[in-house]
Every structure is written in C-alpha cells, then in structure tokens.
C-alpha cells in the first residue's frame, strides 16, 4: 500500500537528486579547470594528496590499481577543457592535461596514454563512481574508447567494485569544505538555476566569467562580481 504523497515526495526527491548531481558535475568540472591553472607542480601536489586520501578510503580498489601493470589511461571529457591522466601500476598517480582538440575520439594519443576513454564529463563522473552502467553507455555510443581495451575494462571493473563518492572524497580533504557538500546537495536546484542564468546572461566574450562564479560556489565565500 503506497501513500500517493510519498510517491510524490519520492519523485521530488529524485528530481532534486538529479539536479544535485548536475550541479556537482558542473562544479567539479569547473574545479578541475582551476586546478589545471595552478600549474604542473601545484596541481601535481594537490592531486597526489587526493590520490593518497582516496587510497585510504578505498583500499581495495587502490591496491588493485597498484597491482596492475604500469599503464596510462586518459579520461577525456568531450565537453571540458581538462582531461585526467591516470597512471595505474606501482607508480599510481593522477595528473591533469589540457584536452586536445580533435576531430575523432580515438586520434593518436601521442604516446601520452595506453588507452583513452572519452564522453560527456557528467557521464564519466557517473562511471568513475559506478553510478551508471558503462556498458550501456558504450552500447548507446555515449562513451568511446580507444587503445588498450583490457586496461579500460580492468579499470572500470576495479572502480565499479567500490562504493565511491568522488566529490565527497575530494572535498573532504579540503577540511571544512566537506561539510558543505550536503548543503550543496540540498540546495542544488537554486544553485543550478544561478549557474544556468549566469551562462545565459553572459555574452560569449565574457564566458570566462562563469569560471569565477563557479569557482566561488564550492566555498560559498564572498567573491567579486563577474
């Protein structure tokens, strides 16, 4: 016996969840863009810290990734300027790379990576956290892969074997910011609207300004007007 109101609430909840997810994706994408701007050294230090933290949180997956043969996977969003270069094996590390403009998803990886997985940023994030079925995405051609297929399958299976919340993990090592994620998720709707409005209002030459807004949001701190 279901209470019809409960169903409505559940629906509202699931819509709110969906919106929260969207904003998380937007924010983390912007966040990655900022990290890239820190330069190789700065971003490297930050990402090393992140990897160490994730390894503590998710020992099973990280032990498995370190046991894999040395190889590099480029995780490349088709809608962002920054890609993730994950090195698995004993030298496990994570680095950022500017996205290469390319006509087809599987153009030469310039020796940078043994395998490339590309798709919309939000989908890649879902995939990394095991929220969505990678095979289904692949069937629908939303994801494309190139290079060492076994490496991608191994990585996918390893990450899928974890219950990961990458954003919560990433924010948690920023100390007090961690407590903001639940708040963020609750207020996803209005925040997303703000972002969308900002995008609409800004003329193309000022698109850079969005990054400032996005940059401000994770911390909810005071910032200059764009």
């Amino acid at each position: 016996m279901r209470d019809p109101d409960a169903v409505l609430d559940a629906d509202a909840e699931s819509i709110a969840d969906g919106r929260a997810r969207l904003i998380e994706a937007e924010l983390s994408r912007a966040g990655l863009g900022l990290v890239l701007r820190m330069g190789d050294r700065g971003s490297g230090l930050l990402l090393d810290r992140l990897v160490r933290l994730l390894a503590i949180r998710h020992p099973r997956a990280f032990v498995a990734m370190r046991e894999m043969p040395d190889a590099r996977v480029l995780i490349e969003p088709t809608d962002a300027r920054v890609a993730l270069l994950l090195r698995v094996g004993p030298e496990l590390s994570l680095r950022l790379r500017p996205c290469q403009a390319r006509k087809d998803g599987a153009a030469a990886t310039d020796g940078m990576a043994d395998a490339v997985i590309s798709g919309p940023y939000a989908r890649l994030l879902d995939l990394l956290e095991g929220r969505i079925d990678g095979d289904a995405l692949f069937f629908r051609r939303e994801l494309s892969i190139a290079g060492d297929t076994a490496l991608i399958v191994a990585l996918r299976n390893t990450l899928d074997g974890e219950e990961m919340d990458l954003l919560a993990d990433a924010l948690s090592f920023a100390g007090p910011l961690a407590s903001l994620l639940p708040v963020l998720r609750r207020n996803a709707g209005p925040l997303l609207d703000r972002l969308a409005d900002a995008r609409r209002l800004l003329p193309p030459p000022l698109k850079w300004g969005i990054a400032r807004i996005e940059a401000r949001l994770p911390g909810f701190g005071p910032g200059r007007e764009a």
Binding site: D104, G105, A106, S144, I145, A146, G147, T149, A150, I152, V153, A154
Partner: peptide, 9 residues
C-alpha cells in the same frame, strides 16, 4: 577477451 579487442574509428 578485451585484451584482443580494438576499437578503431
């Protein structure tokens, strides 16, 4: 097996 699979555009 994935080890023998390649995708080429």
């Amino acid at each position: 097996p994935a080890s023998h699979v390649r995708y080429e555009p």
